[in-house]
């Protein structure tokens, strides 16, 4: 991963402003095309489009009726998504952080194989997991429960989080941990008091990705629930668009609200996100 993230500045020849301003303009055009759907989502969430009426290009007469409807119809689902997202972060970090350290530091037989297995899990289609998990969850009573969804979402996120944090933890100088061990701390204490604080950034990155993954999960929730007992917001949106939509306002308002965590994270934690994208893909 390190080899790909080192930023090598290009030799900047003396290109004048005359050349770079059109580049910026072109960049804005490209970005505009790419994020137009996101604009349209926000734009039409502020308009009433009931009946045959269509959304206009700008929300000149903004209305929040879409959001009111979204809260009325989907409010509980947001709470469900929040519980699932936070629960998944907790379980994933509890399992993945020690494992990442163990795989980064301890030379044991089988760790290389396990790393390979972790890499392979990333490629197993979720529908394959869901198919068999449904029968297992049915047997042990985990269908339609928060615990079931949190466990399944965690399982999906754990391999990626381990790979991400391990890449960082490998770079911690062993001497730091050895010093604590010499002072009489055991491996676990040294891990908690030294490795975890140093790895804060990597852990935050893993937590962000885990939350986004669990919050945005659709397929696991779709397959491992059969009643309305536990309904994340993604299923709420799916229910909206699965039928013939007559008023897109509430649908788009719900989509905007469901997208808020991603937008917030992009603003406050962009560098973590870029690091995570690379960590998961190249490593």
């Amino acid at each position: 991963m390190t080899s790909t993230t080192i930023r090598v500045p290009l030799p900047r020849k003396h290109r004048g402003r005359a050349r770079s301003i059109p580049m910026t303009a072109l960049g804005i055009v490209f970005l505009g095309l790419m994020v137009f759907p996101v604009y349209w989502m926000v734009n039409s969430s502020l308009q009433a489009t009931a009946g045959a009426a269509t959304a206009t290009w700008f929300p000149t007469n903004p209305t929040f009726s879409g959001y009111v409807a979204a809260f009325q119809q989907q409010g509980g689902n947001f709470v469900s998504s929040m519980i699932i997202g936070l629960g998944t972060v907790v379980v994933t970090l509890l399992v993945a952080t020690p494992a990442a350290y163990g795989l980064a530091r301890f030379r044991m037989r089988g760790t290389r194989v396990f790393l390979l297995v972790l890499l392979v899990t990333q490629m197993i289609p979720t529908i394959v997991i869901a198919n068999a998990l449904y029968t297992l969850f049915n047997d042990v009573g985990l269908l339609n429960t928060y615990a079931g969804l949190i466990l399944a979402d965690s399982a999906v996120q754990i391999p990626f989080s381990i790979l991400l944090m391990r890449a960082f933890m490998e770079s911690i100088p062993p001497s730091l941990v050895e010093a604590a061990l010499v002072d009489g701390a055991n491996d676990f204490r040294a891990f908690l008091s030294i490795v975890v604080p140093i790895s804060r950034n990597a852990i935050v990155t893993a937590a962000l990705f885990t939350f986004l993954g669990a919050w945005g999960d659709f397929l696991i929730a779709l397959t491992l629930t059969s009643t309305d007992a536990v309904r994340p917001i993604t299923l709420g949106i799916y229910n909206y668009i699965g039928s013939n939509v007559t008023d897109w306002g509430p649908v788009m308002a719900t989509a905007v609200l469901a997208s808020l965590p991603a937008a917030v994270l992009l603003v406050v934690a962009q560098r973590y996100i870029a690091a995570g994208a690379l960590g998961g893909a190249v490593k």
Partner: peptide
């Protein structure tokens, strides 16, 4: 950085807006 936005949205939210578009 902003280009990453579509990648971070919940897939089903993107599906919804595209279905509308």
């Amino acid at each position: 950085g902003l280009l990453l936005l579509p990648w971070l949205l919940p897939l089903i939210a993107s599906s919804a807006v595209w279905k509308w578009l």
